[in-house]
Amino acid sequence: MRTLFKDMGLLLWLPITILLAWWFGSANSTSIYFPPLELILETFARDWLGPRFVTDALPSIGKFLVGFGIAAAGGVFLGMLIGLSRRLNAALDPLIQFLRAIPPPAILPIALLLFGIGASMNIAVIALGAIWPALLNTIDGVRALDLQVIDMTKSYRLSPAKRIFKVLLPAASPQIFAGLRVTLQMSIILIVVSEMFASTSGIGFYVLNSQQLFAVPETWAGTIVLGLLGYVATLVFVLIERRVLAWHRGMYNSLEKA
C-alpha cells in the first residue's frame, strides 16, 4: 500500500506541477500568444464539448478511421500477396521503396486535383500515404516464416484458409502490428494535414483557420483537440495490440527467464 502511494506520487508530481505552473503562470497573462489556461479551457468546452463536436470532430474522426482502415487492410492484404511470391516481391521492390520514400503529405496536391475538396480527398490521402509501413512490414513478416512451419503446414495438408488465417497471419502478426502502429501515426498526421491543406470543415481546418483569424484561444483549444485525438487513437490501438499479441509477450517473457 505504502509503495503504491509512493509510486503514484512519483508518477503524478511532474504532470501536476506542469499544469499548476501553466494555470497560475498564465492566469493574468496579457500576451496575445499565451492566453490564460482558464480561457483556453473555456473555449475548449464551449466549442468542442458543444456543437463543433458533431459538425467538425465526428466527421474528422470518421474520415480518419475509414482512411486508416483502408490503409491497414490494404497494406496487410497486398503485403501477403507480395510476400508470398518471390518474383512479385523482386518485381515490385524498387517501385515500393521509391513510393514510400516520398513524404506522404507531398501527395496532397495530386489528391486535391483528382478528388477536389471533400471527404474522398482526405480518405484517399490517408489510404495512399499511410499504407507503406503496413505493407512493408507485412511483406517482411510473411517472408520470415520459418521453413519448418511451412513444412508442417504442408505435411499435415492444411487448407489454404487455415494456412493463411491460423498460421501465416499470426506468425507475422508481431511485425504487422509494428507496421500498423506507424500507419496509425501517419494516418493521424495526414488527416490533420489534409484538413489544413484543403477543407471547409474538420478539426484541422478549424485550428489553421483560427490561427489565420488570429483567434488565439481557439487555436490553442484546437491544438488540444488534435493532441487528444492522437492520444486516444494510440491508446485504443495499444489495447487491441496487447490483446492480440498476448501470446507473443508471454513467449518473450518465458524466453527471458530461461
Partner: peptide
C-alpha cells in the same frame, strides 16, 4: 506528449 501529431502544433 508522444502520440500528439507534431503537425498539430503547426498553427501555434
Amino acid at each position: 506528449l508522444k502520440p500528439i501529431p507534431p503537425v498539430a502544433l503547426l498553427p501555434l
